[in-house]
Design a protein around this nucleic acid. Structure first.
Length: 608
RNA sequence: GCGCGUUUAGCUCAGGUGGAUAGAGCGUUGGUCUCCGGAACCAAAGGCCACAGGUUCGAAUCCUGUAACGCGCGCCA
């Protein structure tokens, strides 16, 4: 598949070769940058090549630009018009036939339209969420999940080979504390049932205070009865730890699955310890002199790795325990051993101080620091009616991801998490996200898609048979609005490639919003400005109307609608947002408020 | 104190790797309206791109410094 932009690139390269042969300049041809001008008067594409070459050619940019135009090599007649503009830009207008052919290409390639073959595919591992299995996912995890998942979809579509992965921290202090907290809640339950047991033990100060720990305790009680009862925690908390982690992980899996986030691999930290990988790595590092003994602990000399880490890091504490750094080293080395040449880690922005350390760890593991790429996802502030919704895991009063999904739905949550760059703060307005109106960008985009579907349905009802694509038929599309939309569809493959390379799925959101806008605008303008309609209306369908109605024009426009719908669908799929065939009409009394919520809750319970 | 990040319209944010007159949504103001899904559309007002220097044909974008805000600086994860 060759994009319009690539075709132009070829034309320009041939042209410049011609110029070189004519002695305009001697140097090697530089890369030809082609951009889409912001202003329509500047044509479909522009290049600054004359500005770049001016100095080496030894003549002013504008004069050089004129020369280049004079040597234009365009056997296919792709370029309808060239202008030299401003300081020396070359502005090109592409022949309409090229845009019309693109319409055929969209229809022909369908779900594959926009798929790329990345230049150096390699194998990329994307690790994200990786929340400790010590409680339900919260909103911040939700953003990481949406970004990571959309990025994986985008990278795959762009032609990279991607493995997605969740690192389960099922070893260490945090899960030990969860086990301890679970046991305390378990004892509370027992003491409530049987007051003669006396007061229950107190939760440790840094224990997990969330309500959910009681749920785990209750499940433990149901499974094991009074087996763990006592004044002191059992000597071996291992079975309780295992149980608590299992329960928590099931919650996390369920939430992610519901959120349409899938992982190729769930990697358990515990298995890493059990395999002896940590010890093996430390031995290897010792042999290479990268490790030092100090204060009874074993340190990795990360400051000597040239990655900017400001202090050395402990691998094994003086009490003999491994630190997370050691496990992370073994884990990332493991990813490399499994054939991933490039590792993307998606972390919360509060982990930014971790980057130089992990780069050093990569170096120590015998890899290049550049093989690790850390994407930092900024925090989300939840707003409800303009006011911040309090969060905070320690207080136990946090808004879980499930709460948010319940509130606004999966599509809105994913879309909102993906509308901003990953490193920019998000104010997530819950009121706006659940609004069934055009202020809500998710709704606006989905409505556009549903409307396109409705047009095609209606055409079928009217018995208008759709014709297959042909250039001749597509030439019935003559309105500037129609051609403009095709220009935008043509941007999609380039957008996919660039967004993937930049790791920026949010660009798809902007693309979709603009495309939906073009489409909506067209429908109003077609009637108001051009006095035309796509489909015959009732007023048209009188008498022997079929003899006079221009069916080919309608068929051309139906193909056009179909192509727009296709590209919307492809883009939405990359975001993991549903493309609905029809929008559910909201009840007229939608403004009702709290009453309505209760009604919904009741209905939900009745179903369950 | 050191390090990282952020600073663009009243608000929330884009700005395609240095390009032409700075972009969108919301909000505000004004309009279209017998409507294929009107759950629509159009237009206007609104800017010292935090500040000061520098690099070059050309800077919101790259460099240096300043300020404000956020985050990070454990033998925690």
């Amino acid at each position: 598949m060759v994009s319009v932009q690539q075709s132009l690139q070829q034309v320009l390269r041939a042209t410049l070769e011609e110029c070189k042969d004519a002695g305009l300049f001697r140097c090697e041809l530089p890369e030809i940058a082609i951009s889409r001008p912001k202003r329509a008067e500047h044509g479909d594409f522009a290049t600054n090549i004359a500005l770049v070459l001016a100095q080496r050619a030894g003549r002013p940019p504008r004069a050089l630009a004129e020369e280049i135009v004079g040597h234009l090599v365009d056997p296919e007649g792709m370029i309808a018009q060239v202008d030299v503009a401003g300081p020396g830009f070359l502005n090109f207008r592409i022949a309409d036939a090229y845009w019309l052919r693109l319409l055929g290409e969209v229809l022909h390639t369908g779900d594959e339209f926009g798929r790329g073959s990345a230049a150096s595919p390699g194998r990329i591992n994307v690790e994200f969420v990786s929340a400790n299995p010590t409680g339900p996912l919260h909103v911040g995890h939700g953003r990481g999940a949406a970004v990571g998942d959309a990025l994986c979809r985008l990278l795959r579509f762009a032609g990279y080979h991607v493995g997605s992965e969740y690192y389960v921290n099922d070893a260490g202090n945090q899960v030990a504390m969860l086990a301890r907290s679970t046991w305390v809640r378990y004892m509370e339950l027992l003491c409530e049932r049987d007051p003669s047991r006396g007061p229950a033990p107190a939760l440790p100060e840094d224990g997990y205070q969330g309500e959910y720990v009681r749920d785990i305790a209750l499940q433990l009680l149901e499974r094991d009865g009074e087996r763990w009862a006592g004044a002191e925690p059992p000597g071996d908390l291992e079975p309780i730890r295992e149980f608590a982690v299992f329960v928590t992980l099931e919650w996390i899996r369920a939430t992610l699955q519901r959120f349409r986030v899938e992982f190729d691999h769930w990697f358990s930290e515990r298995t890493l310890h059990q395999s002896g990988a940590l010890q093996r790595w430390v031995d290897a590092l010792k042999a290479r002199g990268l490790v030092k003994d100090e204060d009874g602990a074993l340190w990795l000399k990360t400051t000597e790795m040239g990655t900017g880490d400001d202090k050395d890091r402990v691998l094994r504490k003086s009490d003999g325990e491994w630190t997370y750094t050691t496990a992370d080293l073994a884990y990332h080395a493991n990813k490399l051993e499994r054939g991933f040449g490039h590792l993307i880690d998606i972390w919360g922005a509060d982990h930014h101080g971790y980057v130089p350390r992990m780069k050093a760890v990569m170096k120590a593991a015998g890899a290049e620091p550049s093989q690790l790429e850390a994407l930092l996802v900024q925090f989300v502030t939840l707003l409800q009616g303009g006011e911040k919704v309090a969060m905070g895991k320690r207080s136990g009063k946090f808004e879980t991801l499930d709460d948010v999904i319940d509130e606004v739905g999966i599509d809105a949550a994913r879309f909102f998490f993906l509308t901003r760059r990953h490193d920019s703060h998000i104010d997530f307005d819950l009121e706006l996200a659940k609004k069934q109106s055009l202020d809500n960008p998710v709704f606006y985009v989905q409505y556009g898609y549903a409307r396109a579907c409705a047009i095609l349905r209606r055409a079928a009802e009217l018995g208008i048979d759709e014709a297959p694509y042909s250039l001749e038929l597509s030439e019935r599309l003559k309105l500037p609005e129609e051609i403009n939309v095709l220009r935008r569809l043509a941007d999609f493959p380039t957008l996919v490639a660039e967004a993937a390379a930049a790791r920026e799925p949010h660009r798809l959101v902007f693309f979709l919003t603009e495309l939906a806008q073009d489409f909506q605008s067209y429908y109003t303008r077609l009637q108001k400005v051009h006095g035309d309609t796509v489909l015959p209306q009732r007023r048209h369908r009188e008498g022997d109307w079929q003899a006079t109605w221009d069916f080919d024009k309608t068929r051309a426009r139906l193909l056009w609608v179909r192509a727009i719908r296709q590209v919307m669908k492809n883009a939405l799929a990359l975001l993991g947002v549903e493309a609905p065939e029809r929008m559910e009409r909201m009840p007229a009394e939608a403004a009702a408020g709290p009453d309505e919520d209760e009604v919904e809750d009741d209905a939900g319970e009745a179903k369950a």
